[in-house]
Design a protein around this nucleic acid. Structure first.
Lengths: 334, 334
DNA sequence: TCGAAAACTTGTAGCGCTACAAAAATTTTG
DNA sequence: CAAAATTTTTGTAGCGCTACAAGTTTTCGA
């Protein structure tokens, strides 16, 4: 009774499991890595013992010995955004379907991103999934030197590694056309320059193109450094109405901003979509829950994640950026 | 000209850097791991060469050789929630302050959580940060056998490893007292049983205690399996009004639900806080952006993350759950 | 029942790095 | 300026696992 059951937390090794199971370490290794190589009966016995002992294979040793790992590393710029939630889900599911694990690192700044990538490379991950945005100068070269598969989501031809993205320009054109077809003439567009804005750089040119094609003025453009939260939606509406009191539509950078603008419209007694159409972007939860529900662009971010894993595992033929679908989500607000 | 500069992406080793720098591999190792052990001049030279070559130390090998790593693993139940965003930020910052890296895994279900923990243990992380919620049965034992430091955030005395949490009961009591002090008498309480509901198990008993102490009825309790999104706020308000048409306050499980309830009140022409007080929980962005702004409980989730890292690194004296602060955020809605 | 083919199992030889102790270089002291 | 004290640098010996090729056992057809 005085024996201390687990006084030494000395970690179990494959050898311990092998001894307990009466097989060689290699068989234990095969059980975990290539189950089909081991006879069912043997495998069951080994796995049972491993589970009883609480043995978890040391991935560090495995990665070192094998020279490769079964882990994909993703770096996200932020967790606030529900797009990234869906993106991460897509990554995770696609990775799981291929027997890969996904680890995620959050990086708020380019420096943090670089540091995160270094950790991931240090772990010798099987692939790195980045998100488009401002990067630290050395990042691209670091990844190139490491020779690891890289994918940059929401990026196009100029991506680090290969880009995976839906056609933002096409989505912007479709949304603009939709408003024009509704008879909107004085359409305001919000351009975001800071932070993740560059993921959506194609929105404005596409908007202008369609406005021009319809013979409308594309001068109602508001450029802001950042826009998040309802408050900025209110501010933006303010600014637009000061610019053009007869504004009849507004294209917001996200559903959250659109919701803020919508609330501000309601506060001012402007009917949506009667007096003014409000369009969001991104198909966030909130767009479905405000009234009127927001017309928006649905990015299928989980498909971007899936595409990213396919690129990393080499399942994607061809070259150039991978295009994922998007959809115009026409609801009540525009 | 026919030589291929980097035909073989054979990864660089410490030896390569050592050769290029004219020092021994150990010196290179020390430069990365214990910079203060190496003379400044030598270190600069080595780091310069390492950077030029694009060398990144193989953490797998390092972890294997050293028997420990400088990486903390966190498992989050979801990224949707802004609390977890702040929690993760707190983890990251506190980890960075101690020279540790943080890797995050998202797990939607207990099975995924178990699998994530196995990967983390396989990586031989220096600590595992869990979030309270339903766990797979084997999880606790697995972690105990691994002998790795574990912390469970939002958990109390019964935590796996050590708990870090604010006093949910005290927060609930404070909020209830606040409503009572306002003269509210028919207060509805929403109890969530599913998902993360158990993180807030102490809310209901605390509510009842205060209602009883004030001589009020605590029977206006609605139990739902899950509540997220504005829509459930509307549903909940519906149900309460059916139960008690003279309801004068409602305690919602989150600010999102509270916002939904608030919108429903406005739709029905009920004045908030005039006719009915609406209180949220969690201090989400949205609570600050609706009008009237929501009274809520602010959890300082980043402090929970910070506390979790402190526990994992052994910086926290004593035993028992670690208490983090909370604050009653009194705003307009209650 | 026997031999060949197929299926399964097992040594061997590192993977790249770090703890540790010992050696070398440098600085300080008498 | 030599000896002692201190700071820097360097071999050695694995960490736990897996690729690979070489056994060993089982299965199967004749």
């Amino acid at each position: 009774m005085s024996d201390t059951p687990s006084i030494s937390p000395k970690s179990l090794t494959m050898q311990d499991v092998a001894d307990a199971a009466g097989v060689s370490p290699m068989t234990v290794s095969n059980c975990f890595r290539y189950p089909e190589r081991v006879r069912e009966k043997t495998r069951m016995a080994v796995m049972k013992i491993a589970a009883d002992l609480g043995y978890v294979p040391n991935l560090s040793a495995g990665t070192l010995a094998a020279g490769s790992s079964r882990v994909i590393g993703a770096v996200l710029p932020s967790m606030r955004n529900s797009s990234f939630y869906n993106y991460n889900s897509g990554l995770r599911q696609a990775a799981a379907a291929r027997g890969l694990e996904l680890i995620t690192m959050i990086a708020e700044t380019p420096e943090e991103e670089l540091s995160a990538v270094q950790t991931l490379l240090g772990l010798r991950v099987a692939g790195v999934a980045l998100v488009a945005g401002p990067h630290e100068p050395g990042l691209s070269q670091l990844l190139a030197l490491a020779g690891v598969p890289v994918v940059e989501s929401w990026a196009g031809e100029d991506a680090i590694g290969r880009g995976v993205c839906y056609d933002v320009g096409a989505a912007s054109r479709a949304l603009t056309r939709h408003l024009i077809a509704q008879g909107r003439r004085r359409i305001g567009f919000v351009e975001v320059t800071g932070g993740g804005g560059q993921r959506y750089a194609m929105r404005l040119p596409a908007f202008r193109q369609e406005m021009f094609a319809a013979g409308l003025s594309d001068s109602l453009v508001l450029t802001v450094r950042a826009a998040d939260g309802f408050a900025s939606g209110a501010t933006i509406l303010d600014s637009f109405l000061a610019l053009e009191p007869n504004l009849d539509a507004i294209l917001c950078p996200t559903d959250v901003v659109a919701a803020g603008a919508l609330f501000e419209c309601q506060r001012r007694g402007l009917a949506v979509p009667g007096d003014i159409a409000v369009a969001g972007w991104g198909d966030y939860d909130i767009g479905r829950q405000v009234s009127p529900m927001l017309t928006t662009v649905r990015p299928f971010s989980d498909e971007i994640g899936k595409g990213a894993i396919e690129v990393l595992t080499g399942d994607h033929e061809g070259s150039g950026a991978v295009a994922t679908p998007f959809a115009l989500q026409l609801r009540e607000s525009a």
